[in-house]
Design a protein around this nucleic acid. Structure first.
Lengths: 254, 254
DNA sequence: CCATCTTTGTGCACGCGTTCACAAAGACAT
DNA sequence: ATGTCTTTGTGAACGCGTGCACAAAGATGG
């Protein structure tokens, strides 16, 4: 017995499944596009195609929000845009700070998608004194020393971490201590946060590695038996069977 | 209908669950850190803590790869690093191209995490003639016209799309036609690709919106006051009907 | 007003992923 | 060698997410 049970049943979403929440922005984007083209109504089938999901899934997702459709007709685009926006909390303004104004941080600061939908970059923060005052995306970079004051003055509750991995946890701790309760982490590290703080991570390296896995698998299927020719000492350890896979693992580095 | 999209029942991983594959890079990172500190072995409990996952989950994940641990001791760090690397296909070199060298594309080009682990930026491609030849991350940007040639000359099978949303599908089509079978998409669009092509998307805006949802929920729990009748226009489902187009729907919030 | 047609909303079944809990396996001390 | 102790590997239960398939709801036309 190692640790006591601090079992949280995850986030108690107001009845809306997490998987559904993750798709709402997708629907919202598709709906916004329709709205701009002045399309009045849309069927679940059409909208699902535009969002790249199954239509049954879409209908079930919407059912968690309430009954906003009209049978025989479909969904009112404008109405749905509003409902989803409200559900996602996009009808209010969310000031965010970006910490770590390197290449990525600067790119994020310039990213239009931020401001487009309820999010406003309240401040850019960097630890490098040479960056202080320097304008990025039409906004002066501020020094990390003022982090706490910036957070509290602007009522920031969402922070974006784009620092090197080594600084991420420290920055995270300061953000949380200053009152930030949601963090979007671009640094390749596992962040530890107290209960009640949400962390989402975006990791370019991980995404690429997942792609590489599938890519390797695809390559291995077409021309089977050519990538395993690597030499290596025979290992008595792996006498396990791996199922129907014809893979022959037998290599181990010293 | 226009798109006859065949929906994939996910990828048919050769026995290794997709969820496990997605965690392997996480384990690999933690193991690499241990390796650099010359730690010889690690228990599932320790490694799980470092990777931020449940230890039982980690053991089950590893069980899909084979029996690489020693009971009573743990896992050999070096051995596991190698096994996971091999499983992910990181023992070989993956040339990638980045298309769309704006702020984000440039940031990606400079991102160290790319080159660190089997991935090599083979080329930077942009549609802007003014960018052509300009060095970014010590590498000259090439024009979109040469995309097909670049792909085939370098044997690129992984492409990164960092273009504006409007250009993404077109770029995607050209990449796929040229032989790319894995795409990492940063453009806020749903990409349609033929069977056999993997697409992973990274969407900053979506991540923020998901955070906003939880943030709103957190705020709403503390001060349960305005949830429904907030700023919503007085429109009910049945009354709401947009007449003939021309009228501006009055459903949008401030 | 009734029939028909379209599309939503959802009950249900199934499969995947997660977690628990424990037996088996090996290290280590005596 | 034998017993004890640690840690793995996994069977089994459970819960969530997905997709099918269909009844209910409403529009539309006669």
């Amino acid at each position: 017995m190692a640790t006591g049970r601090t079992h949280r049943p995850a986030t108690r979403s107001r009845g809306i499944p997490e998987a559904t929440v993750a798709r709402l922005p997708l629907y919202l984007r598709a709906l916004t596009a329709l709205s701009e083209r002045s399309v009045p109504t849309v069927s679940s089938e059409e909208l699902a195609a535009a969002a790249g999901v199954n239509s049954a899934k879409l209908r079930k997702d919407f059912s968690y929000l309430g009954s906003y459709g009209t049978r025989g007709v479909g969904y009112d685009v404008e109405y749905l845009v509003y409902q989803i926006s409200r559900e996602l909390g996009l009808t209010q303004d969310w000031p965010v700070v970006i910490v770590g104004i390197g290449n990525l941080g600067a790119a994020l600061a310039n990213y239009g998608g931020f401001a487009s939908r309820g999010f406003r970059v309240a401040a850019l923060i960097d630890a490098d004194p040479a960056m202080a005052g320097k304008p990025v995306a039409g906004m002066p970079v501020q020094h990390t020393d003022d982090l706490e004051k910036i957070i509290s003055d602007n009522g920031v509750s969402i922070g974006v971490i784009a620092t090197p991995a080594g600084a991420a946890q420290q920055v995270c701790d300061r953000l949380v201590a200053a009152g930030v309760t949601s963090i979007l982490n671009f640094a390749p590290t596992v962040l530890t946060v107290p209960d009640g703080v949400d962390v989402r991570k975006v990791d370019l390296s991980i995404e690429l590695q997942i792609l590489a896995f599938h890519e390797q698998r695809k390559a291995g299927e077409e021309s089977a038996a050519d990538a395993d020719a690597a030499a290596g000492p025979a290992v008595t350890k792996n006498q396990h069977r791996k199922g129907p896979d014809g893979d022959v693992p037998a290599v181990m580095p010293a």
